[in-house]
Structures are given as structure tokens and as C-alpha cells.
Design a binder for these strands. Structure first.
Length: 200
DNA sequence: ATAGGGATTCTC
DNA sequence: AGAATCCCTATT
């Protein structure tokens, strides 16, 4: 299912489980916001510089993780899309915390935020789920450490019933007006776990 | 070798 | 509005 272009995979990931298992226990949530990044032609994508050490996973097998460090501080998680050898990835921008809330809360070394927002934001979600670059390249379909899983169809249907909102990607003004304007961000409409730019 | 800057978040 | 903070990428 991951061998499709990122702009197609991004909305398809909405409503799926993202599950993290560590020695400390299990933490999991439902993906509510995603963002698509293309290959060498996408001026907003890390792959724009071609195949490099950092972006190697983006060119690798689909369904694996691409985890990078941004601003020297925060990890961000992507699901690699497209065919092996062709770059593409979907940034997971927000997850609705469902299992292991205490664990997620403990990992955030800050005063308790609203539970809904524990994993609202690409860097927040990585902190809440203990995702860092040690998981770069990890197979997200293997069912261990960090993986994706299908929810009950009825559950997912109910979630998607609120509708999918689209909009331009966040923080990519450097890519120029054309690429920055592409509506490649997807989110469950009005969901309380959406990231900061989309909260009221 | 070095400069420039970032797919963010938090605080002032 | 500005800082925090590392490492990637491009250039010299």
C-alpha cells in the first residue's frame, strides 16, 4: 500500500494506528494529520538535493521510516512512499493519543498539556512516542518497536466521517510560491489532536 | 574547513 | 518576536 506517490499515501494514512513498543511499555495513537513530500523535483522536500547520507531512506523501500533532526532539537517521523529508488515520504504531523497516555505524558518534560495534544505536532509526537533517529530506516510494517496497523474498519470509518481537510504544507516558504502552495497537508477536519497551526 | 540555515516548539 | 541547538548541504 506504500508504493504510491506521497500525495496519495498521505490521506490514506489518516486513521491508521501508529504503535510504539519500548521497555517502558506500549504507547499508540491514531494518525490525524499528515503531509506529503516528493522527490528531487519537489523544492520543499529533503530529497531535492538528491540521494545523500541523510535522505537515503527516502529513496529506499516504501513503508520504512525516515527520521530526521530539525533545528538541532526535534526528531520528525516520515513514512517512505513510492517505489524503491524513487524518493517520497509522508511526514506524520499529529497523532491522537489512545494507548499509554501516562507514558507519553511522562516523556514530555513539561507541565501536562491537554491529553488530546500530547502528540499534536511532528516533533511532539516523536517525543511522546520515543521516536528518534535510531529508528531511521526502520521497517514500519514489521510489527515491532514502531509500526503501523489497520484499525477496525468501523472505527476508521467513524473517524473519517468528519471529513478530510487539505491545505498547504507548513514551514516550507523557502521552496518558492509554487511548491509551497501545493495543498499536500491532510488532516481530519476539526479533530482536537491536530497540530498547532490548525487549532482554533 | 567553514558558513548558512532549517518539514519546530516554547517562552517572553 | 526570538531563542534553543545540531548537523546537513553547499561552497571555498
Amino acid at each position: 500500500m506504500f508504493e504510491i506517490p506521497a500525495p496519495e499515501l498521505a490521506p490514506a494514512l489518516l486513521g491508521l494506528w501508529l504503535i510504539r513498543a519500548t521497555r517502558d511499555g506500549l504507547a499508540a495513537g491514531v494518525i490525524v494529520e499528515t503531509e506529503a513530500y516528493g522527490g528531487v523535483d519537489d523544492r520543499a522536500s529533503h530529497a531535492r538535493a538528491g540521494r545523500t547520507k541523510r535522505t537515503e531512506p527516502m529513496f529506499g523501500p516504501p513503508g520504512h521510516a525516515y527520521v530526521y533532526l530539525v533545528y538541532g532539537l526535534h526528531s520528525c517521523l516520515n513514512v517512505v512512499s513510492g517505489m524503491d529508488g524513487e524518493a517520497g515520504a509522508v511526514l506524520i504531523r499529529a497523532v491522537a493519543p489512545t494507548i499509554g497516555l501516562a507514558l507519553m505524558s511522562a516523556r514530555r518534560h513539561r507541565p501536562a498539556d491537554a491529553d488530546d495534544r500530547l502528540a499534536a505536532g511532528p516533533a511532539r509526537l516523536c517525543q511522546a512516542l520515543a521516536v528518534d533517529r535510531s529508528l531511521d530506516g526502520h521497517d514500519l510494517t514489521a510489527g515491532r518497536e514502531l509500526w503501523l496497523a489497520d484499525p477496525e474498519p468501523a472505527t476508521r470509518h467513524a473517524l473519517l466521517a468528519r471529513g478530510v481537510a487539505r491545505g498547504p504544507r507548513i514551514g516550507v516558504a523557502y521552496a518558492g510560491p509554487d511548491w509551497a502552495a501545493r495543498p499536500w497537508r491532510f488532516g481530519l477536519r476539526d479533530h482536537p489532536a491536530l497540530s498547532a497551526p490548525f487549532r482554533p
